[in-house]
Amino acid sequence: MKTTAPLALLLLGLVWLGMPAPAAAQATEGAPPPYEADLMRLSEILGALHYIRPLCGAAEATRWRDEMGALLEAESPSDARRGRLVAAFNRGYESYAQVYRSCTPSAELASQRYLETGAKLSRDIAARYGSN
């Protein structure tokens, strides 16, 4: 089952539509937002999807990198925080680039699980930290 459209909507919509304004203030004060660990994980997942989805035939050459760009734009992180988010994305990408050279059943399964996990993280972040 292919579920990229719902994940994209969640990534670009649910996470950032409800983000409270204080998140940017916290970042400038040096304290990461309370959802930082989840956002790092989401960045890693986007990196993995950027590698594995096209490998398995999805017509998504830049989709997941574009999603990461939207995340960075929405968060407006400091340079240091931006570097950590980008490093997480690259770690996700590289972890699969080192293992998979062709699409296998294992790669397909990983892709599906990352789509599901990314959607869940997005929903959870929006529900827990979004404004009312």
Rank of each mutant, 00 (worst) to 15 (best):
E44N: 13
L7D: 10
L109V: 07
S131Y: 09
P34W: 00
R128Q: 09
I45W: 03
S122G: 13
V99W: 04
E75L: 13
Q98M: 03
A80N: 04
L12E: 15
L115R: 03
A27T: 14
P105Y: 06
S76E: 15
P54C: 05
E67T: 09
A48H: 14
L46V: 08
F89D: 07
G69M: 01
R82I: 00
E29V: 00
R101P: 10
P6A: 02
R81H: 03
E67Q: 13
E73D: 14
L55Y: 01
L42G: 04
V15I: 15
Y129V: 06
G130I: 06
A87F: 03
L12G: 14
S78I: 05
P20S: 14
C56F: 09
E75D: 06
R41K: 09
L46I: 05
P6C: 07
A70P: 04
A70M: 11
G30C: 03
A21Q: 10
R91C: 01
L39R: 06
A8E: 01
E116Q: 09
A24E: 15
L46Y: 00
L72R: 05
A24F: 12
T104V: 08
S131H: 10
C103Y: 05
Q26D: 13
Y129M: 01
G30Y: 05
D124G: 13
Y35H: 11
L85N: 03
G13Y: 09
R123A: 06
E73I: 04
A87Q: 08
P34R: 01
G18M: 00
M40L: 15
L46G: 07
D79Y: 00
Y96N: 10
S102W: 06
Y96I: 12
C103R: 00
L121K: 07
I125A: 10
G130M: 05
A126C: 06
A59G: 09
K2E: 15
L11R: 05
S122C: 09
S106D: 14
D38N: 10
D124E: 15
F89Y: 05
S111V: 07
A61S: 11
M68Y: 10
P6V: 07
L121M: 06
S102I: 04
S102R: 13
W16N: 08
L14D: 14
A8I: 15
A74E: 12
A97K: 15
R53P: 11
G13K: 07
D79P: 11
T3L: 11
E94H: 08
A27I: 15
Q98G: 06
E36L: 08
A24N: 14
A110C: 05
R91G: 03
E108V: 13
L12V: 12
Y51H: 09
A25Y: 04
L10V: 11
L49S: 04
A80L: 02
A74L: 01
P34G: 13
A8F: 05
R84G: 01
E75T: 14
D66A: 11
E29N: 14
G30M: 02
K2A: 14
S111L: 04
M40Y: 04
Y51C: 03
T4P: 11
G57V: 02
R53W: 03
Q98I: 02
M1I: 08
A70Y: 10
A119Y: 02
P22E: 13
I125L: 09
G57K: 00
L39A: 02
A37F: 01
L121S: 03
G57A: 02
L14N: 14
G118V: 06
L39M: 06
R81N: 04
A58G: 13
